[in-house]
């Protein structure tokens, strides 16, 4: 689909949405209208922008933790067939658990501030990242390990310079899954209890029935998620180009 066609469709949908709201076919108090969202943006734009930055910082911090811990745990566990065999079922069992039940525990421990969101987000991202990394690392061609050892690589060099690097495509897909879950988790946790952040303001305006603000906040979350996803795509493509 060309960009022009996409744009046209978007405009059409927005116009239809607005018209249906104006004609009273859809209740604008429930579904909002594009003009309501625009008005909300004019009125509370600054608050939402500051909140976006707040949320972004939380997401990036949680991401840094989940990426570091997830990749290193995954690589170390995946490097040995036995440890992968023992531990990966435990991790995949954890994926089934709605981790959100842990959030109140984290809040009780660390308070309502950004720390609790960062920990919860990092935990949510950790499991899929670690699990995909384990399966990626245990699936590499083991002959490369022999090669590296014969060339004089020590255990750390074999694991981090050869095995992890060979498993990079799998690790990247784990990062993609983990990161998108993590972004949602941070916003979710802000919606549950927070002092600032996009999720917090969405919930706040929901309780006041400020429909425009709710939709505006949701749009910002979508933009944020899409932006971070795009960044990840870009990094992946760069990496691919480098190694081809």
């Amino acid at each position: 689909m060309s960009i022009l066609r996409k744009l046209l469709i978007t405009i059409l949908v927005l116009a239809l949405w607005e018209a249906l709201g104006a004609a009273g076919i859809l209740n604008p108090m429930l579904v909002g209208t594009p003009s309501m969202i625009a008005r909300a943006a004019m009125k509370d734009g600054t608050t939402f922008l500051i909140a976006s930055r707040f949320t972004l910082v939380e997401i990036l911090s949680a991401g840094a933790i989940a990426w570091t811990l997830g990749i290193s745990a995954g690589v170390i566990i995946g490097a040995r067939a036995t440890s992968a065999l023992i531990i990966s079922p435990l991790l995949s069992a954890m994926i089934a658990v709605p981790l959100v039940v842990l959030y109140p525990v984290i809040v009780a421990w660390t308070g309502i501030g950004p720390t609790s969101k960062i920990i919860y987000g990092a935990a949510t991202g950790f499991f899929p990242i670690a699990l995909t990394t384990i399966s990626g690392v245990s699936a590499i061609d083991r002959r490369f390990v022999d090669m590296a050892r014969a060339m004089g690589a020590n255990t750390a060099q074999v694991i981090f310079q050869v095995m992890a690097r060979l498993a990079l495509p799998a690790i990247m897909s784990g990062l993609r899954i983990g990161s998108s879950l993590l972004i949602i988790a941070v916003v979710q946790s802000e919606m549950l209890s927070a002092t600032d952040g996009l999720g917090f303001w969405i919930s706040y305006h929901r309780s006041l029935f400020n429909v425009g603000q709710v939709y505006f906040g949701i749009c910002l979350v979508l933009v944020l998620a899409a932006g971070l996803n795009g960044l990840l795509n870009y990094c992946e493509r760069r990496l691919r180009l480098q190694t081809a």
């Binding site: 069992a93 954890m94 658990v97 709605p98 039940v101 109140p104 525990v105 009780a108 209890s193």
Partner: peptide, 28 residues
């Protein structure tokens, strides 16, 4: 779970979390 967390009733909170954890893992 949310209420017990907000009122720092850690024993009840953990009990309910444990219930959810065990049930989901078993089902899965």
């Amino acid at each position: 779970i949310l209420n017990w967390g907000e009122s720092f009733d850690m024993e009840r909170l953990f009990a309910a979390v444990m219930l959810v954890l065990i049930v989901t893992v078993l089902i899965n």
